[in-house]
């Protein structure tokens, strides 16, 4: 039996973000929101553990319930038993520590948990802070970049992908792990599961529900402030050769490289 909690972040689909060339700011209006990719791997792993050992899967997500519903229904269809939407004015513009505090507050309110699973990082911020901070706040051990989990009673054994090094680590539960994209292939829910999800619960909790307030989360409590976000644009020649021009292109590019001193010599 594993009682798992999966932290799902709703993010803008970063592949659809464009940059306004006048203001040099990213354009977010109209960009669809989705569950961050690696968080789906986290959910998949939790569902697999439940299938293998029994137990339950709960998900926690910060955001406005209304904007989250579609994504949370998807999580329920994939195999979550209940999804919690954490919604409060105080949850807007949180830094990593604030985010981790909110998630930890929600997890502490749950009756019981064995394993918290997060993605290695979110696809928008790619910081990888929240899972680790969550573990610190909950006072439990953490393993990041996990590419394999096996459960054995009240312990889990994980493999961590640390670049060239693979580490095998044993953790006593409760614990937090963050998983890589390579750990599994997230399933696509079938029609039955999608329909079944509509009867599963989505519950909304506010700051006071999880015992937090202005003191912990208000602007004065923010550890960091984002003062500017600048779009990244690329100036490039973009000389692209197609069809009948490709052979000419090969010659011209070879010419550029030869002239640039890239060939021979070293």
């Amino acid at each position: 039996m594993v009682e798992s909690v999966v932290c799902l972040k709703q993010v803008f689909d970063v592949s659809k973000i464009t940059i306004d060339t006048d203001t040099n700011k990213p354009i977010l209006t109209g960009v669809p929101r989705k569950i961050s990719d690696f968080d789906k791997n986290a959910l998949e792993e939790a569902v697999k553990l439940k299938e293998a050992h029994g137990g339950s899967v709960k998900t926690v997500t910060i955001g406005e319930t209304e904007k989250l519903t579609e994504n949370l229904r998807e999580a329920l269809a994939i195999g979550s038993d209940i999804s919690y939407a954490l919604e409060d004015k105080l949850f807007e513009n949180l830094d990593s520590f604030g985010t981790a505090s909110v998630l930890a507050g929600a997890i502490k309110k749950l009756e019981k948990y064995d394993l918290v699973i997060c993605g290695e990082a979110s696809i928008d911020n790619y910081a990888g802070q929240v899972g680790v901070q969550l573990a610190e706040i909950l006072g439990v051990p953490v393993a990041t970049y996990v590419k394999k989990v096996t459960q054995d009673g009240n312990k889990i054994k994980v493999e961590r992908a640390l670049g060239l090094v693979t580490e095998e680590v044993e953790l006593e539960l409760p614990a937090v792990v963050t998983v890589t994209k390579e750990i599994n292939e997230p399933r696509l829910p079938n029609l039955m599961q999608i329909m079944g999800a509509s009867s599963k619960p989505i519950e909304t909790w506010s700051a006071s529900d999880i015992g937090l307030g202005e003191g912990e989360l208000g602007a004065d409590a923010h550890k960091m402030t984002t003062v500017d976000v600048k779009g990244v644009t690329m100036e490039r020649k973009r000389q692209v050769y197609q069809d009948d021009d490709v052979d000419k292109g090969i010659e011209e590019i070879a010419g550029v490289l030869l002239k640039g001193g890239f060939v021979g010599g070293a």
């Binding site: 973000i17 700011k25 990213p26 790619y126 960091m224 500017d228 976000v229």
Partner: peptide
């Protein structure tokens, strides 16, 4: 005050520490 890549690589954020 630091800069880091955000939004999956589409933007750079400028952030300051308060603590």
């Amino acid at each position: 005050q630091i800069e880091r890549i955000v939004m999956g690589g589409n933007a750079t954020a400028v952030e300051v520490f308060n603590t």
